[in-house]
């Protein structure tokens, strides 16, 4: 019984991390139909820089901010100076983000080396807390709470603000949104920056769950793509449901049938692509 609880809680932790990664990515995609394949590299960048700052200063808060901000700067630079030059050319945009992702990952290998890095957490944060059904690390509980609060905040912004309405309009129909006066390219830049910031933050807190290593960027990117394809590109609700499904499948498959873990992760994505290409909550193009 304990295994069941443990796998469920691990699945929820993974879902929380994936939601933090995928929420911004899916909105940015919805607005400009650009899949940022460097998103995993921003996770890695935020992680390494954040952990270094925590090691240097001893402050988790500073580390989180540093990890988020370095990824935000990377995202802004990439959007402004590279992506804008190839706007509208789908293949060039995708290749550009792959190239940037590879360059960042290689640069991180040069700077930080290939040894796995874990998150230096204080004893209080590492200590398990009693969740009623079992003991579980406090920091992982905090990750779940953070993802939940982030989800609520994003939902409130998207539902009740003029900014959120403009983003929804842009995701629905970019051309018409522009003809009605909405500056969609500027909105996209903003959403892209927030998405990069969140990827950096996820890189720092995710290191408590998965050590930073070379190749993690691709793994995290793949899982984020699974999330947004299942949920529907451009849908926040889809990102939440997709993250829950992917997190749970990942945890239980790894726990019970590790040799089939990838099969169980990519099977739902493949089925969705074949039978409901717009995803569970996306709108047909």
């Amino acid at each position: 019984m304990n295994t069941l609880y443990f796998l469920t809680l691990n699945g929820l932790t993974m879902a929380a991390l994936l939601f933090i990664m995928a929420s911004g990515l899916t909105l940015a995609f919805g607005l400009m139909r650009v899949v940022n394949l460097a998103h995993g590299a921003f996770y890695l960048l935020g992680g390494y820089v954040g952990v270094q700052v925590i090691n240097d200063t001893g402050s988790l808060t500073l580390g989180l901010l540093a990890g988020g901000c370095i990824a935000l700067v990377g995202g802004l630079l990439m959007e402004r100076f590279l992506l804008q030059r190839v706007r509208g050319l789908d293949l060039s945009e995708a290749l550009m983000t792959i190239a940037v992702g590879l360059i960042i990952a290689d640069a991180l290998l040069v700077v930080y080396g290939g040894q796995p890095v874990s998150l230096p957490l204080s004893r209080e944060l590492r200590a398990p807390v009693d969740l009623g059904v079992m003991m579980y690390p406090y920091f992982r509980v905090l990750i779940m709470v953070f993802a939940l609060l982030l989800g609520i905040l994003l939902w409130l912004v998207m539902t009740y603000t003029r900014l959120g309405a403009a983003i929804r309009a842009g995701v629905d129909d970019r051309e018409t949104a522009m003809s009605q006066g909405i500056n969609v390219p500027l909105l996209f830049g903003g959403v892209f920056a927030v998405a990069s910031f969140l990827a950096g933050i996820a890189g720092v807190i995710g290191t408590s769950y998965m050590s930073l290593t070379q190749g993690l960027d691709v793994r995290v990117l793949m899982l984020s793509l699974v999330v947004i394809i299942i949920g529907g590109m451009g849908s926040l609700k889809g990102a939440a449901v997709g993250a829950l499904i992917t997190g749970m499948v990942s945890s239980f498959a790894t726990g019970y049938l590790p040799q089939f873990a990838l099969f169980f992760l990519f099977l739902p994505m493949t089925l969705i692509l074949v039978f409901r290409p717009q995803g569970l909550f996306g709108r047909a193009a």
Binding site: A165, R168, D172, E175, T176, M178, S179, R283
Partner: peptide, 30 residues
């Protein structure tokens, strides 16, 4: 297009092109 719209040009596109994710009120408020 968004710069042209902000000069004071209103546009009713062929086929309406409403936003499925926005309510009637939101279309007008936006």
């Amino acid at each position: 297009p968004h710069r042209i719209a902000h000069l004071g040009v209103g546009y009713v596109p062929q086929g309406r092109r409403l936003f499925p994710s926005l309510s009637v009120d939101e279309h007008l408020q936006l």
